[in-house]
Design a protein around this nucleic acid. Structure first.
Lengths: 320, 320
DNA sequence: GTAAAGTATGAAACGCGTTTCATCGCAAGA
DNA sequence: TCTTGCGATGAAACGCGTTTCATACTTTAC
């Protein structure tokens, strides 16, 4: 492997000059610059990035912590991060955690070991404080609403509220909700909105987990089997909502005549399924998180908007 | 930043001994080991991974080249890679390319610069030969069928054949297909299967691109507007097939009475949509590709199985 | 009892690019 | 003519952990 010193020898210059040529620094005479470039071609020299990282003391790499990749919400955020990272000539390492704390800790370890310069925590199991212990090693940006941290998020309380208000406006009183996980910050906010706004809110009308289409099918089956059925469901993911929708239709239930459904995320799927949904800018969450983690030097909180998109799975309550 | 030499000084040993302790080498006396561990705690020492990478001459990192993350096929493969990489204590860098050659070249550059030890090329725009030029720098594994390369793939010719045979068996003669991209290896294989097996195969019944649900909606609209309609569609992705399905149903077309649909991938969505599909083990593709790129030392070709899963979007042709 | 084998440890080299600091030539300003 | 000052360049230090090699002391083995 030829290195910068070989280059210097062949070109008849010092290593500093070679480095200057490599990095397009000024103050290099044309003839020497050409001699170096000639040597590079002759020896087939290729820069060792690892050495550059060590010498510069930075890796131009960030870490991304998320539970699953094969889930549209997370992959959309990841897409946003990837896009922005590419433009900024940054790389990113991903920790796909399944919400296992041990895996999240590995990402923190990488941060402290200076393998990554910052961390985007899309969703996590570990307490936020555990993350903040590592703040000295690099910026940590969350995609969930925690106090006193840099974060890019959507106000899920308000988002759920808008969905619930819509259902109430349509005359629904027996409303159920489906939450992705039991105890996440988002779920807590959403649950609060539920109990704040729905007079007849009931613990047994909260279904969880709601992450996959299969969860949707399960939720629909449960609904079918229950003797006191909500007339409307606000579901934390379009994917899950699609599962619910299809399973109910299969069972002969008419949507929205028999039950109203509202999804969440605004995934393209919701459009072809004509699902009413609360749309959020997932890619932008990722992009902004990347911007914060690389550019910002103070704690920043970015709240991105949501939008209730009414389509064909919601209507005025007709039955009891 | 305290380093290994500070540690040596404080512990009263040499740097070699410190390194031995850090790496659990044998041949370190207990008292010295403890002295080093004590020093580590005292000084709050944290290993610099970049230095380790440089010294060891390896990064335990591989690169992944794929066009999009927010697409279920790719994210499922990525999930497989991520899972396996975690177990092997490997990291991976991702190049999300949008099929832009320039972006793919950046991944190759990273390989040559020893930033990554190998490359998994899930799908690509650049000619395979362009990749193979870089084989000296590390193993390159494809997830598509190219000659003379390490690859993990599904036989898409056979896969499409099985779908087409099923449709023919059901009495369909006017069969259309939807391909993800015009000129990918997979599409070429699939197109060949189409022309080999379907007597009335027509160029105008090949629809492309077919990557997103929106593509599905577009394809369905085209079908609705055409005057000579295929009675069956074999679609290269469940996502797209879902889009087709929902859009046709919206328009009052009965599936499978008026048209049979077969999807591809075996995505969970196909189950709740009751879509007939050709199921392939996406996660396993990723996992095996990871295994090859890190463990194998010769060119290996792994062909993974597919399976036709008959559900409710296919039936005997009833109309003309 | 002596050779062979194993245990323990440190100095120094190594991987490799970047950056600081000193130096020197030469041109512009006084 | 003398002083600034900029342009150009190299030596050496730096970032930091790993590994090789030599050395020296203990144990086993015969």
């Amino acid at each position: 492997m030829t290195n910068i010193r070989d280059l210097a020898r062949v070109a008849g210059v010092s290593v500093s000059t070679v480095s200057r040529v490599l990095n397009d620094h000024p103050y290099v005479a044309d003839d020497k610059r050409q001699a170096v470039q000639q040597a590079i071609l002759e020896l087939g020299y290729i820069r060792n990035q690892t050495a550059v990282h060590l010498a510069r003391g930075r890796t131009k790499t960030i870490g991304v912590v998320l539970p699953y990749v094969d889930h549209p919400y997370y992959s959309a955020i990841l897409q946003g991060i990837a896009r922005r990272a590419f433009d900024a000539e940054y790389r990113f390492l991903m920790w796909q955690t399944n919400y296992e704390e041990e895996r999240e800790r590995l990402a923190l370890q990488a941060l402290s070991q200076r393998e990554v310069e910052g961390l985007i925590v899309v969703s996590h199991a570990l307490a936020p404080e555990e993350f903040l212990k590592f703040e000295d090693y690099g910026r940590i940006v969350f995609c969930e609403n925690h106090p006193n941290v840099s974060t890019v998020y959507v106000d899920h309380y308000a988002g759920f509220r808008s969905g619930l208000e819509e259902l109430i406006r349509l005359g629904h009183e027996k409303i159920g909700i489906c939450l992705s996980r039991e105890h996440s910050v988002n779920s807590i906010a959403r649950k609060k909105a539920y109990f704040d706004l729905v007079p007849d809110a009931r613990q047994e009308w909260i279904d969880t987990p709601a992450l996959t289409v299969e969860d949707g099918a399960r939720i629909a089956s449960r609904w079918l089997a229950s003797n006191e059925r909500p007339t409307a469901l606000l579901i934390a993911s379009d994917y899950v909502a699609s599962g619910v929708y299809m399973t109910l239709r299969k069972a002969g239930i008419r949507v929205p005549e028999d039950i109203s459904l509202i999804g969440f995320d605004g995934h393209p799927l919701s459009a072809v399924m004509e699902l009413t949904t609360i749309s959020i800018p997932c890619e932008e969450i990722g992009g902004e998180a990347f911007r914060l983690v690389t550019e910002s030097d103070k704690t920043e909180r970015i709240i991105l908007p949501f939008e209730l998109v009414s389509r064909k799975t919601t209507s005025v309550r007709t039955n009891v």
